[in-house]
C-alpha cells in the first residue's frame, strides 16, 4: 500500500501558466492523424475482418452456425459438386450483425471459413448478407 500524495503546491498563476505552456508547445510536434484513404496504417497479421469461405473445403457441419453469438450465420442450400459436402449446405454471413469474434474461424474443423484483412465492406442496407458464393469471392468482385 502506498498513500498518494497531493501534488506540490505551485505559486498561484505560475502553475497555470506552466500548464498552458505545456499544452501550447505541442504545436511543434507532428500530428498523429493518418489521412485514411491516402495513407493506410500497418495492419498486424492477426488483424481480421471479412469472412471468406472456401467452398471446396466446407463440409456443411453447421458448427459455425451454432457457435455464432449473433446468429449472423445461416446455412444455405447450394447446388454444387462437392463430395465432402453431402447435404449441399454452406454458410452465408450477415455482415450487418457480424461482430468479428472469430469463433467461426476457430471452430471450423476443415478451416474452410477464415477471416482476412479486408475490411472496407460499405454496402447498401439490404445487401449485407453475403451468400456462400459471394463469401468465396474477393471483395471487389462481390456485387454490391
Amino acid at each position: 500500500m502506498i498513500e498518494v500524495k497531493e501534488p506540490k503546491k505551485e505559486v498561484p498563476l505560475i502553475g497555470t501558466i506552466k500548464a498552458i505552456a505545456s499544452v501550447g508547445k505541442h504545436i511543434f510536434q507532428k500530428p498523429v492523424t493518418l489521412q485514411y484513404p491516402e495513407e493506410r496504417p500497418n495492419y498486424p497479421d492477426r488483424f481480421r475482418y471479412r469472412i471468406f469461405l472456401s467452398l471446396d473445403d466446407c463440409v456443411g457441419c453447421t458448427l459455425c452456425e451454432q457457435v455464432c453469438p449473433n446468429r449472423s450465420i445461416t446455412m444455405q442450400k447450394v447446388n454444387r459438386d462437392n463430395p465432402r459436402n453431402k447435404r449441399h449446405i454452406y454458410p452465408d454471413v450477415n455482415f450487418g450483425t457480424c461482430t468479428v469474434c472469430r469463433n467461426c474461424e476457430e471452430i471450423c474443423p476443415t478451416d474452410a471459413i477464415y477471416l482476412t484483412h479486408t475490411f472496407e465492406l460499405a454496402r447498401t442496407r439490404n445487401s449485407f448478407t453475403y451468400s456462400p458464393e459471394e463469401l468465396s469471392l474477393p471483395e471487389d468482385e462481390v456485387i454490391k
Binding site: 501550447g24 500530428p31 498523429v32
Partner: peptide, 13 residues
C-alpha cells in the same frame, strides 16, 4: 487549425 495542431490533429484540409 491551431486547435487541431495543438491536439496533434491536422484540422480541416
Amino acid at each position: 487549425k491551431y486547435m487541431a495542431r495543438v491536439q496533434l490533429r491536422i484540422g480541416p484540409n
